[in-house]
Nucleic acid binder design. Structure first.
Length: 439
DNA sequence: AAGCGTATCAACCGCGTCGAA
DNA sequence: CTTCGACGCGGTTGATACGCT
């Protein structure tokens, strides 16, 4: 048995609203108030469905609506909120006075999801032979899956992109990170959702420079104390002022490319200023220098996070097919080895659209005292050269070029230049790639 | 200038949730 | 406890605007 229609279909006007209808609806609501949508059209003398009236009022006629384009600040906020809330447009809109869920949803679908689409390596465009692992795409699938949002199926380009392309005099010029886009947006607290949601998002700046965001929120009681610290950080307290609590060692502080702080305690919990995320399930960050250990044990520390959290993390771990790998997130040791420099020359995020380059934000950490440099100083166009990534010690350099080789050529050419049919891209590499991206 | 392809956004549709009966 | 109506939400559609060739 089908559901009864919300209103009679016959005699109901559809399509665009006229100015007269708008005026009738506005006057009626001003006189009688919102609500009773079902009976409203009849009472107001409109030949419209109640739903349609409600939608028209909420999305267009309300006096408190903000008109005009989405600003950079709002875009940043949408990205951050979407990373935490997913496609809960009404909730996102609730954090953005004057904006409607429909407006935000449209903006996401037409603007922001395409950026994800660009970041996500499309299978159809890839020359990767069918194989068990396609690291970059798979990782991005993983990231996008958890709140990264659906990617528009139909849209390929963008009119705004066309405008930019036309007006751009220097396509390789990285988008300026200073200003709104680089500002940390303080996430409004939405407890129930944060408690249940583990999500991630990725955004990509245009012009061939990447802004990689993996923001997650998974609130648990055990993580709450860290959230308090991150709240301090987001309200102006620097990372240095986030002193560890008794019995806890501040093992590392990393910087999200978004400009937010990413912290981890000795217990392996990782916090973001846009939420907190118990990472015990997936990896340990126990090394004071930021050594990140990736593991697949999802059962040992469940008591520290809620069952929901554990379930979600388990799901992520399942997707990641975790093995055991240890990588590092530091990149500040100075070496004068030209050979290593040459190796790292392969690691360039000035990539083409089918290539994903990734540099570790943590590599930007000042190794002397753990103090974070200003993210604005990050050189997006040539990060390897300009951000001293050329000074990685040999082990890290090998890892980077090794990972890069796997992804950069899409054909799994190994470091020796031999073709790898995919089988050679073993779990270890895959997990290392995941760990690297997450770091 | 015309035609075509695409982006944008208002509106529609169906389903889930909630509260009252 | 069940049913039903109202509402709200998210996904999708379609008309229109716009940019490119």
């Amino acid at each position: 048995m089908g559901r009864a229609p919300c209103c009679e279909k016959v005699g109901i006007k559809r399509g665009r609203w006229t100015a007269e209808e708008d005026e009738i609806l506005t006057k009626y609501i001003q006189a009688s108030g919102e609500g009773s949508w079902r009976s409203l059209p009849k009472n107001a003398g409109l030949l419209r469905c109640g739903k349609s009236c409600r939608l028209r009022w909420i999305n267009y006629l309300r006096s408190d609506l903000k008109r005009g384009n989405i600003t950079a600040e709002e875009e940043e906020l949408i990205i951050n909120l979407h990373a935490s809330l997913g496609n809960r447009w009404s909730l996102i809109a609730g954090h953005m006075p004057g904006r409607t869920d429909n407006e935000i949803k449209n903006y996401w679908n037409s603007h922001l999801s395409r950026q994800l689409h660009k970041f996500k390596k499309p299978d159809s465009e890839s020359s990767v032979p069918p194989g068990p692992l396609q690291p970059a795409a798979e990782v991005m699938d993983l990231v996008v899956e958890h709140g990264g949002g659906e990617v528009s199926k139909k849209r390929k380009g963008s009119r705004s992109n066309m405008r930019k392309n036309r007006s751009s005099t220097n396509p390789s010029q990285p988008k300026e990170l200073a200003g709104p886009a680089a500002a940390t947006v303080q996430m409004p607290r939405t407890p129930t959702l944060e408690e249940e949601t583990l999500s991630s998002a990725v955004s990509l700046e245009e012009g061939g420079t990447s802004k990689f965001v993996v923001s997650s929120s998974l609130m648990t009681d055990a993580c709450a104390k860290r959230e308090r610290r991150q709240n301090l950080a987001s309200t102006g307290t620097t990372s240095d002022e986030c002193t560890p609590e008794v019995g806890e060692t501040k093992s590392s502080v990393m910087l999200q490319p978004e400009g937010g702080l990413m912290t981890s305690g000795s217990d392996g919990a990782v916090g973001l200023d846009s939420g907190t995320f118990c990472l015990d399930e997936m990896m340990n960050i126990g090394d004071p220098d930021g050594i990140l250990t990736f593991h697949g044990n999802t059962t040992s520390t469940k008591e520290t996070c809620s069952e929901t959290a554990a379930t979600n993390v388990e799901r992520q771990c399942d997707n990641m097919d975790p093995g055991y790998y240890t990588t590092t997130t530091r990149a500040s040791n100075i070496v004068d080895d030209q050979e290593e420099t040459d190796k790292l020359g392969k690691m360039d995020v000035s990539n083409g659209r089918n290539q994903i380059g990734c540099t570790s934000p943590a590599a930007h950490e000042d190794h002397h005292d753990g103090k974070l440099d200003d993210w604005d100083d990050w050189q997006w166009d040539e990060p390897v050269v300009q951000n001293n990534l050329t000074t990685l010690p040999g082990e890290e350099a090998d890892l980077l070029s090794w990972l890069w080789d796997s992804d950069n050529n899409n054909n799994y050419l190994n470091s020796s230049g031999n073709f790898d049919d995919g089988a050679g891209m073993d779990d270890e590499k895959h997990n290392a790639m995941v760990a690297w991206l997450l770091s």
